[in-house]
Design a protein around this nucleic acid. Structure first.
Lengths: 191, 191
DNA sequence: TCGTAGTTATGTACGTCCTTCATGGTAAGA
DNA sequence: TCTTACCATGAAGGACGTACATAACTACGA
């Protein structure tokens, strides 16, 4: 190994705006402890786990015109009779509204979702699941259940709860940080 | 609620090959217990967590011509002096070799990686990290560390270990299952 | 009432990841 | 030798996701 570099000064200014760096360091707290390696490993593990989930899902909804992001929307819409606006779907899923528009397009082409005008706001469009969409969900439920059970084979209920909550805490941290950063760049250059 | 459908027969033959279904059910074990909801929640949570990681990573490597999959490769290559073959990289990352070829293309265009012939096998090509690639990694290390620390803000060392291991157990399950399924479809139609 | 600022969905244009299939070059075992 | 298998890559395509611009519409203040 080489000796340790001096990371106290920015090795490459273009990587992060100093304000961003400061905000992160501030948010992260004490920067000099041994948890770092673990966080890298955990980050990589999440990526691996996600790919596993996606591969299972791809296998399950194979050749049926619905996949990944679209399925997320369909499941959300299955819980609502009146329908959900594009913007609300985007906020709930944490993606851009343009992306949701595209996903709803494909679902609508497949007849699983229908666009209806929002009676309360004429700018807004509600996506509403169709009977065919509900039938699709119904048919998907059991194979999906089997696949998920297989994915989490050997996990106890407690482990599942812990796992879910750790994932969500991560996401909350990221959301919080993104909020701070965007808020920070909206305001003046120097506080 | 409506009454329960009869899921003992396949509600839609095109969803899963019966052999695949049987293999999954067999692998998953007892199908009639209350863990199912938790597995769905956990699956969705993984997806959310992954998006958080990706967003952080995108923020960090922004505008530097390296992202996600390419970064994974670069980090792997940083650990090897001689270089790693395309096929080995693909197997290690769990993606198609064609995909790795493309990622190495972009890294090579950026000057971070170089292709060298494999002295032991003239079919094979080794990807080897360049000094510029190592410098990139070096510059990326600290901001990335801060970002990861922020992502896992509030996680104890024990929680990180548990989280990492749960992710990897998931991936192992999926891998195991995929092996069984491919093995199953390679052999005859009826066992 | 009018005008302005903000919101909503969507068109356009991109970039990235990942896949399958086909192909020419190469290794290795019959 | 010759047949089979493996290796990287060309070609083509699907899906996800982004940013920016725009037309329709709402809401709020003068």
């Amino acid at each position: 190994m080489k000796d340790v570099h001096n990371y106290d000064r920015d090795p490459d200014g273009s990587l992060y705006d100093p304000r961003v760096r400061a905000a992160m360091a501030d948010f992260a707290g004490d920067p000099a402890d041994p948890l770092t390696l673990l966080t890298f490993e955990a980050g990589a593990a999440v990526r691996t786990a996600y790919h596993s989930v996606e591969r299972m899902r791809a296998h399950g909804s194979q050749g049926r015109g619905v996949s990944a992001g679209a399925l997320d929307l369909l499941i959300r819409l299955n819980g609502s009779d009146a329908g959900i606006s594009i913007g609300d779907l985007a906020r709930a899923a944490g993606v851009s509204s343009r992306n949701v528009t595209g996903l709803v397009d494909t679902l609508e082409n497949d007849g699983l979702v229908r666009r209806v005008p929002d009676p309360g706001d004429r700018r807004s469009v509600l996506a509403r699941i169709t009977p065919a969409g509900r039938a699709w969900i119904e048919a998907f439920r059991e194979p999906s259940r089997l696949a998920m059970r297989a994915m989490f084979q050997g996990f106890s209920a407690e482990e599942l709860v812990v796992f879910r909550d750790l994932c969500l805490r991560m996401a909350a941290n990221q959301h919080h940080l993104a909020d701070r950063l965007s808020h920070l760049s909206q305001n003046g250059e120097q506080p």
